[in-house]
């Protein structure tokens, strides 16, 4: 069902990137997240799994304050990035999102050239002083996203002309171009075919060298393949959080066990 060896990595000695305490999220009167505590480590892939509507995407969107754009959404509790409260009044969500990049479920490149897609973030944040700097950032980002070889000869062609898997890697390149510290991925492979999925998963494993990666996924196999830590959400609660190997082989909570064995969800 999943290949176990990858799970046995030792991740205990890594630094904590995000720490969330007692996080609640409300959509109007509805409480979508009911008190979540979680620590997300650096250089680690953390997977959020759980049935539809369990709140895993909602929680992910708290980490870069994408929920701010929804009028009726209200977040309480404490979320710290490197010890700083990201919901503090002094924090500009725009700066935060440069540090915490995001990749979405459906590949959503801008209807612009491949180059402009990647260069957009560095441009608006003023990260490149010269054209040469920008060229270097674009190349480096595309290399990181394993897209350079396929895209280097067609940088001026529209990003929307790429295949689905290439588009998603372009979106990853776009996200890493602002040199983030954390990459949030909201079901990044759910719109891709198996081959593109495999490429993106391989990429996620490489990205772990430089970033902390948080991935929401519907596929338990995918969580098992790419992540070192897994968090199981159910009905707005974080039911269980631990090493991926332990969650999948020896879950402590019976709801987790029911889910991974396919009895709920």
């Amino acid at each position: 069902m999943y290949d176990a060896p990858k799970l046995e990595r030792n991740v205990d000695d890594r630094t904590i990137k995000f720490s969330a305490r007692n996080v609640h999220v409300f959509y109007g009167e509805t409480e979508a997240i009911k008190g979540v505590d979680v620590d997300i480590l650096d250089n680690t892939v953390t997977a959020f799994i759980g049935p539809s509507g369990c709140g895993k995407s909602t929680f992910l969107r708290c980490l870069n304050r994408m929920n701010d754009t929804i009028d009726i959404c209200r977040v309480t509790g404490d979320i710290r990035l490197d010890g700083h409260d990201i919901y503090d009044r002094s924090v500009d969500p725009v700066q935060l999102r440069a540090k915490v990049g995001m990749v979405f479920q459906k590949p959503n490149p801008f209807p612009k050239s491949i180059y402009d897609n990647v260069a957009y973030g560095p441009r608006i944040h003023g990260l490149a002083r010269t054209r040469a700097d920008l060229d270097a950032i674009v190349e480096q980002s595309l290399r990181r996203a394993a897209l350079w070889d396929e895209a280097k000869d067609r940088l001026d062609q529209p990003g929307t002309g790429l295949s689905g898997g290439q588009q998603q890697r372009l979106c990853i390149a776009r996200a890493v171009a602002t040199s983030p510290e954390v990459l949030l991925m909201d079901e990044p492979c759910s719109a891709l075919d198996p081959i593109a999925t495999a490429q993106v998963e391989e990429l996620i494993d490489e990205l772990r060298q430089d970033y902390s990666v948080v991935i929401v996924t519907h596929s338990m196999q995918q969580a098992a393949r790419v992540s070192q830590k897994t968090a199981f959400f159910h009905l707005g609660h974080l039911v269980e959080f631990g090493d991926t190997g332990q969650i999948f082989t020896n879950p402590h909570d019976e709801r987790t066990e029911s889910y991974i064995t396919g009895r709920i969800g």
Partner: peptide, 17 residues
């Protein structure tokens, strides 16, 4: 489509951008 807004917001564009 909202995905375009999300994409831009996601890389840190301000509302105005």
């Amino acid at each position: 489509p909202p995905s375009i807004r999300e994409a831009a917001l996601g890389v840190g564009a301000s509302k105005h951008q």
